[in-house]
Write a protein that binds this DNA or RNA. Sequence first.
DNA 1: GGTTTGACAGACCAACTAGTTTGTTATTTA
DNA 2: TAAATAACAAACTAGTTGGTCTGTCAAACC
Lengths: 202, 202
Amino acid sequence: MSATALRNPDLTRQRILDVAFEEILLKGYQGLRVDQVLKITALTKGAFYHHFSSKQALGHAVIDEVLKPWIVDKWVKPLKQFNDPVKDLIEMLTVARQEINMTELHTGCPLNNLTQEMSPLDESFRVRITAIWQLWHDALSAAFERGQASGLIRQDVIPNNVARFLIAAMEGIIGQCKCYMNDTAFDEAGACLKDYIESLSA
Amino acid sequence: MSATALRNPDLTRQRILDVAFEEILLKGYQGLRVDQVLKITALTKGAFYHHFSSKQALGHAVIDEVLKPWIVDKWVKPLKQFNDPVKDLIEMLTVARQEINMTELHTGCPLNNLTQEMSPLDESFRVRITAIWQLWHDALSAAFERGQASGLIRQDVIPNNVARFLIAAMEGIIGQCKCYMNDTAFDEAGACLKDYIESLSA
DNA sequence: GGTTTGACAGACCAACTAGTTTGTTATTTA
DNA sequence: TAAATAACAAACTAGTTGGTCTGTCAAACC
């Protein structure tokens, strides 16, 4: 199967997933319209329901095949190479801060958006989403455990608790920016987050 | 106009607002169905569109007349009587923790829910919501300023930043619980939040 | 006490939306 | 190469949803 083939089912499926991910990011799953995805991809109902059995199945696929890899690549994998959690985490957040533009500030975190909207509404969504949070949490918690083992992190901090708190704080900050629509709120809260992280040093 | 009158327009309007608030809390504004509100209130289209010009107008009224007073009474007003921010804040969070039940843990914070869903979608919602956050922020920031004036809070902390961070952290924690569906995440992150708040003492 | 007006009831409508069905064509397979 | 199948196209459907319209009755007003 050549890349220039008139019919490239894998690519077609991926295009649907990518557009759906973007639409969910902008409007939420409930605001996602199958017709709108088809309009953007220039596909038809026939194509869509050939690849996905329902809108819900699309939602599941977006979580498993787009959202999860996105989070894992961007936030989970890097944590596994952390040696000095405090230093590396601040570096990570600094880089993320520089990469953020107004659009992202406005749309927020795709994982948290979906969590807030869908967790209470659809158990099949909730379990998929929770698994992703747990991956993140475990990697962050493990980083602090290693930090304690190497004597860089205070022995009295509880990695599990700190990981929960840091993820919550980061997502909370991003969430606040969605309504303020500027990055001052991000930097103001970010300064305190940095202070807190630094307070974990041994 | 007696309270037992067959027609009590003020009560009718309030019933619609209360049910709509609850429905939005459970399903979001996009998931809110006018028909469902009418079913629950046992009213009709005639009644609804007599009191509200549109679903959007209902949304605005819910924010202004239900959500805002709810936040102000529960989270803003108490802050104005804070003398020792660290002590009073921890007391406030302890009480809130005890009041929380599984249902609330599952539905999350009504203000944050609406923020995450509607801020990017409807500017008229965003400005109303932002004003409520700002009330909360200002009251919390002012409490820390008073705490500094009375020497209870470290002079190097920036009340504005701390207020932003604390609100973000609290909402982030509540948001995390929505997917985990248990209160351990709440307590784990809460322990760190308490540590941070205590670190602000002079 | 008659009139006006506010507060509804409920049938109705048009647009939307997820999903179906039937048909067509490219691609693979025997 | 011919048959089978995968990958679509597109018209269609049934149910939903916000909103309208006409009518009715209670309550205020004169």
